[in-house]
């Protein structure tokens, strides 16, 4: 009984290893330039480059907008305060 169990276990182990082996890509034996790789293994540079430039522009525009918004708020507060102070000095 134990012989059968051992044989079945060995066969299962062999099947697992064999399937992993079967799906292995062939070993690379020499230098392959990036330009000669199959299309599935090449990563396009353009989307990364465009993303980088787009991020630079978006980040700078958002930052410029936040400065403008904060400056507008300070100016509005200042005008409101000046009005309030002028009213107060007028009533005295």
């Amino acid at each position: 009984m134990s012989v059968i169990r051992t044989t079945v276990s060995a066969c299962c182990a062999w099947l697992l290893v064999a399937s992993a082996w079967a799906f292995q890509p062939p070993p690379q034996r020499e230098f392959v330039p990036v330009s000669q790789l199959p299309p599935t293994e090449q990563m396009p540079a353009a989307p990364l480059l465009i993303s980088a430039y787009a991020f630079v522009w978006v980040a700078l525009m958002v930052y410029l907008w936040t400065i403008w918004r904060r400056l507008n708020k300070v100016e509005a507060d200042m005008q409101a305060l000046e009005r309030r102070m002028a009213q107060r000095s007028g009533t005295r």
Binding site: L64, V74, L81
Partner: peptide, 27 residues
């Protein structure tokens, strides 16, 4: 140049904030 521009805009904002704080103190 962009750095100089953003830095001067940001410094202006800080200066205006300081002026606003002084106005609040005066009030």
């Amino acid at each position: 140049l962009l750095f100089t521009l953003l830095f001067s805009a940001r410094t202006h904002l800080e200066r205006r904030r300081a002026e606003l704080d002084e106005l609040y103190l005066d009030e």
